[in-house]
Simulated scan of single mutants.
Amino acid sequence: MPPLFHPHLVNCPFEDPGLYVDFLFERRAVLFDLGDTAPLPPRKVLRLSHIFVSHTHVDHFIGFDRVVRLCLGREKRLHLVGPPGFVDRVTARLGGYTWNLVGTFPTDFTVAAAELHPDGSIHSAEFHCRAAFSRENEQRDHVHGGVLLDEEAFRVRSVFLDHGIPCLAFALEEKNHVHILKNRLREAGLPTGPWLAELKRAILGGRDDGEPFTVWWREEGQERGTRFSLGELRERFTKTVAGQKIVYVTDAAPTPENRRRIVELAAGADYLFIEAPFLDEERERAGDRCHLTARVAGELGRDAGVARVVPFHFSPRYTGRESLLREEVERAFRG
């Protein structure tokens, strides 16, 4: 089965951070960090359902205005999540413009912003276009395990890192795949159809193998069916495999606690997108600026057992010497 998620960096590694993740079977995408979005065409911006912001330094949040401008006049709800103080930052950005004409718009573009706190509490608010993006419907809730979004097919999990300020790192975790063995269905004389989606949900939902399950289809205008146990269908006609895992880490001091949290978050990931601003020979400069070095980035990927490390957020000091950063990451990753 082809991968569900297709990730790519929005900009070159010397420019603003941002990771765009496209969904294979939906007109949908998510974005990690909101730096310069100019390389994203409007059609890609309009696919976004959620944006997860690590922190609001200018190179991670300057793209907010362009996203809002492209979404104006559309019936769309866009979710943004960031660290403590994020709702105030969104309020300030939207409050910087005059919205006297939007009350007549036929659509109501809505920004739903939320901020996560280290104790797991989450504070959210909504900003409706037709209400001139005034702050309303504020709520407080609590999340467990840093899970910011939990849907049928995937979840987004976060951890706090120290960048001199609280900074979030994110993991996009696809839940297990259930593959249908269609050759076995044909051999058993069973048709494909909507019942297969129900079967996948039953398996992924952890329902008991002993539960009865009806395989149904339409034939000559009539509904027909055959009953099996869920366990028999699972054993004979499906194969369950682990889903993708994509991790995004940026702007983190090279402290032991940060390293521990990154390794735990990234464990077994298919992709680790991780900052590598400086060579290790400049580790004092990196530490002073609360950033990782290329060597540490590679070591973290190795310690986490990831399949692939993708470095980014290179310091402009290395313009023309990009290969040095990439080589140091790769040496440390390969051990």
Rank of each mutant, 00 (worst) to 15 (best):
P277D: 08
G193T: 00
D209N: 10
S158Q: 03
F32P: 14
P83S: 11
P254G: 07
A132D: 00
G18S: 08
V263L: 09
E232I: 11
A286C: 08
R27K: 15
M1L: 13
R334D: 07
D33M: 04
R308Q: 14
L190F: 05
P194R: 10
H163A: 15
T255N: 08
E330F: 00
S134G: 13
E152W: 09
G189R: 04
T91V: 04
L172E: 08
V53M: 04
T107A: 13
K182H: 14
I262G: 07
L149V: 02
E327F: 03
R331D: 02
P83Y: 10
R135Y: 00
F333W: 13
L78T: 04
T319I: 13
W217D: 07
D280M: 01
E219P: 01
L204H: 11
P17E: 08
W217K: 01
E115I: 00
A304E: 04
R140G: 04
V53T: 05
V178W: 14
T214F: 07
E235R: 15
D88Y: 06
E174G: 14
E174K: 12
V296K: 03
T214S: 12
R74F: 00
A202Y: 08
V310E: 13
E138D: 07
I262K: 06
E174H: 09
I62M: 11
R234L: 13
R157M: 00
T110W: 06
S134Q: 12
P118W: 02
D16W: 12
A269P: 03
E173M: 11
E211H: 00
R201V: 06
P106Q: 10
H117L: 12
E151T: 15
L40G: 11
A153L: 14
V102C: 07
P194I: 03
T238Q: 10
R184N: 05
G305Q: 11
S49N: 00
L78P: 04
A169F: 00
L24R: 15
L4C: 09
A276W: 09
T91M: 09
L196M: 14
G225R: 08
E284T: 11
K245T: 11
D162V: 05
D108C: 11
T110M: 05
F213Y: 11
F314M: 05
P83H: 12
R186M: 01
E275N: 05
L40M: 10
L272H: 07
E75H: 02
L272N: 05
R28Y: 12
V21N: 08
E281R: 15
F86E: 08
N176H: 13
A297N: 02
E219S: 09
L34N: 01
L272A: 03
G243E: 14
L80Y: 02
L168V: 06
R317M: 14
W216Y: 15
L40W: 01
H313Q: 07
R93Y: 06
I262L: 09
